[in-house]
């Protein structure tokens, strides 16, 4: 029994160290980004908010942030418009070739991102869309739509379809049934999927670096070009803000999923 206890202590101690390896780098840059010095060094010579101020003052950082928000928002919207109907069709429809559909839609998930970027660049150049924000929005939609599809499909698996029939028998059309019955029930998953789609587009850098130049630069693209020159503490402060944003959005997803589970258990027969 003693050996078992020791093994279990060792296991938890090891897990703690490994989790620290995963998480501490994300935290240690917080004090580093608050440096008052001109370069990133540890320990920091003193603390100040000057590099966060720099992000606000430099118009390039702000405009790239706006670009990222615009691209990610439109990609998310398109992903939902394409993904939600497809999820309903895949979850409830009976037709041959479902596996083929899944394989086609999952392809963007596994393809090496450089190939996606180069292919998108050559394709959008051939139809005259390079230098337009739409090229990046469409490419990001392809990368983000699988996550919307899988999240919504998963929530539909536990959906009680008698509710749809009940709505129809009470005279509701398909649009009314969708907006008044289906959508409210799957809303938590739809919002989770949308948030994840937003994160995917907002964080994506490789395709963005192939498709955008100058004015259309997204935030990750801006970080990427900054890293290749020399790392200014401003980059560390952007990194901190991006980690913070992910944390907030993930907490939101966690809350929504808890809510979704409660909602399903309430309506379950």
């Amino acid at each position: 029994m003693k050996a078992a206890t020791m093994r279990s202590v060792a296991m938890y101690a090891y897990s703690g160290i490994l989790l620290a390896f995963i998480l501490v780098p994300l935290l240690i840059i917080v004090p580093m980004s608050l440096t008052s010095g001109n370069s990133l060094a540890f320990p920091t010579p003193g603390y100040s908010l000057r590099w966060y101020q720099e992000l606000i003052d430099d118009p390039r950082w702000f405009s790239s942030f706006v670009n990222s928000v615009v691209v990610a928002s439109v990609s998310t919207l398109l992903s939902c418009l394409l993904g939600i109907p497809a999820a309903i069709g895949l979850a409830w429809g009976r037709f041959p070739g479902k596996r083929v559909v899944y394989a086609i839609v999952a392809a963007p998930l596994v393809a090496p991102i450089v190939i996606v970027g180069v292919a998108a660049f050559s394709f959008f150049a051939s139809i005259g869309l390079t230098g337009s924000r739409w090229a990046l929005i469409l490419a990001h939609t392809a990368l983000a739509v699988p996550i919307v599809l899988t999240t919504v499909t998963a929530s539909l698996a536990g959906f009680d379809r008698t509710l749809v029939r009940a709505a129809a028998s009470l005279g509701a059309g398909s649009a009314t049934t969708f907006f008044r019955v289906i959508l409210p029930m799957i809303a938590p998953s739809v919002i989770s999927g949308a948030i994840m789609a937003f994160i995917i587009s907002f964080d994506e850098v490789v395709v963005a670096s192939f498709l955008t130049t100058g004015e259309q630069r997204t935030l990750p693209r801006m970080i990427f070009s900054g890293v290749r020159e020399s790392i200014s503490p401003a980059i560390a402060s952007v990194a901190v803000l991006l980690v913070l944003l992910s944390a907030i959005l993930l907490a939101l997803i966690g809350w929504l999923q808890g809510r979704g589970a409660r909602m399903r258990s309430r309506t379950a027969p």
């Binding site: 394409l82 109907p85 497809a86 309903i88 069709g89 429809g93 037709f95 392809a142 599809l149």
Partner: peptide, 12 residues
């Protein structure tokens, strides 16, 4: 149900 899937497949 099949028609709902078509736009996504075409898009990809």
């Amino acid at each position: 149900m099949t028609l709902l899937v078509v736009p996504l497949v075409l898009f990809i």
